[in-house]
């Protein structure tokens, strides 16, 4: 399941909901991304996430489907926020559940790596010098590229 929302989320409640009554689940992995108060050597007062309503949901659904194709998952969840957030606030949540830990660990990392390079979101940081759009990082592309060895169904 995927959700794109302005509001905060509760990671523990989401995890409980995802695992539910499924007693075949033996492993759950989660990742929570937070707003930092510093970028490079500049202090960040807040961050605004812009997105492309419609396409963002489609891309997240596609990325989630790809994870479920590659790993035997009993459940998966992506929540990504948009709007203005202050340091310490949660931005993104990924949860994966599987019988054994390897699939949960790997798919959770895969989902974050692909999400960062494929989901249409853009970060605007509020710095003492004014608003600054964040540049895409080569390290994020390299992280996503690691997963390219697996056969992929996407059309790109």
């Amino acid at each position: 399941m995927i959700r794109v929302q302005r509001e905060d989320f509760d990671p523990c409640a989401e995890m409980d909901r995802l695992t539910g009554a499924d007693r075949t689940i033996g492993a759950v992995c989660s990742f929570v991304g937070l707003v930092r108060d510093i970028a490079g050597d500049q202090s960040i007062g807040a961050m605004t996430l812009e997105h492309y309503p419609g396409m963002t949901e489609r891309e997240l659904e596609r990325i989630e489907a790809e994870a479920n194709r590659r790993w035997p998952l009993q459940g998966s969840l992506i929540i990504h926020r948009y709007g203005r957030m202050e340091p310490g606030e949660r931005i993104v949540l990924v949860i994966t559940a599987s019988r054994h830990r390897k699939a949960a660990f790997e798919s959770c990392e895969f989902l974050m790596d692909w999400l960062k390079t494929k989901a249409p979101f853009w970060k605007l940081e509020e710095t003492p010098d004014g608003g600054q759009w964040v540049d895409a990082r080569e390290a994020d592309n390299a992280a996503a590229q690691r997963w390219a060895d697996e056969p992929s169904t996407e059309k790109e």
Partner: peptide, 10 residues
């Protein structure tokens, strides 16, 4: 048609 810079979410 949408035009935008490389994405920076997550």
């Amino acid at each position: 048609i949408a035009l935008f810079p490389p994405v920076t979410g997550g």
